[in-house]
Amino acid sequence: MRTEGTVEAFRRAEKLVAQRRPLEALRTLGPVLDEAPDKPSVQLLAGRAYLFSAQFQRAELAFLRVIELDPSDHYARLVLGRTLQRQGRLDEAHTQVRLAATMYPDPAYQEVLGEIRAHIARLNDSG
């Protein structure tokens, strides 16, 4: 991010996402996305805002872009998995969250993985 105004806009957008005001965050983040579309932190923040505003396809694309730019980003894989889960794409979600949990063995990641596995098991039992 090149200008002070861009950094300031990014920080404002971060605060808005933290406050669960994703649409305002996306409006604030627009110029930042225009200026730094290949910056993983910008795509990750946009993806989170899209996810929180139920724009799942846009969130998916943003998280995939982060992973393309930085394949080792475990958090991007986790939230991509959550995004896929919200779309009912459980097998794909499981794959991404399993990778994230392998890369970063955090109990919270394991909890998400268990949740997805339980959901898949319920569907298999009822089907």
Rank of each mutant, 00 (worst) to 15 (best):
L44E: 12
A36E: 06
A25L: 06
P22W: 03
L64N: 12
V7G: 09
Q96I: 03
R2V: 12
H74Y: 06
R11P: 04
A36P: 06
R65G: 00
Q43G: 01
L16K: 05
Q96L: 06
R27I: 10
A18K: 14
V66R: 00
A54P: 12
A121E: 15
L26C: 08
Q19H: 07
R86G: 08
M1H: 11
S41A: 15
T102M: 08
D34N: 13
L113I: 09
R77K: 09
R11K: 14
A62N: 00
E14Q: 15
G114K: 14
L45P: 07
Y75K: 05
Y104D: 15
A62Q: 03
M103D: 10
R27T: 15
V112H: 11
E8Y: 07
F63N: 00
R21M: 11
L33G: 02
L45M: 03
L113Y: 10
D70E: 07
L51G: 04
E24A: 14
T83E: 01
S72I: 02
E68H: 02
A59N: 03
D38K: 05
V7K: 12
A13N: 04
A13H: 05
D70K: 03
V17P: 10
D91A: 13
V79E: 07
N124I: 12
V17K: 06
A25W: 09
A62H: 00
P40M: 03
P22E: 03
P105E: 08
D34T: 11
Y104T: 13
V112S: 13
L29Q: 06
R48F: 10
Y75F: 10
L84D: 03
G5W: 03
T6H: 02
V97Y: 05
E4D: 11
T3M: 03
Q19G: 06
A18Y: 05
G127S: 14
P31T: 10
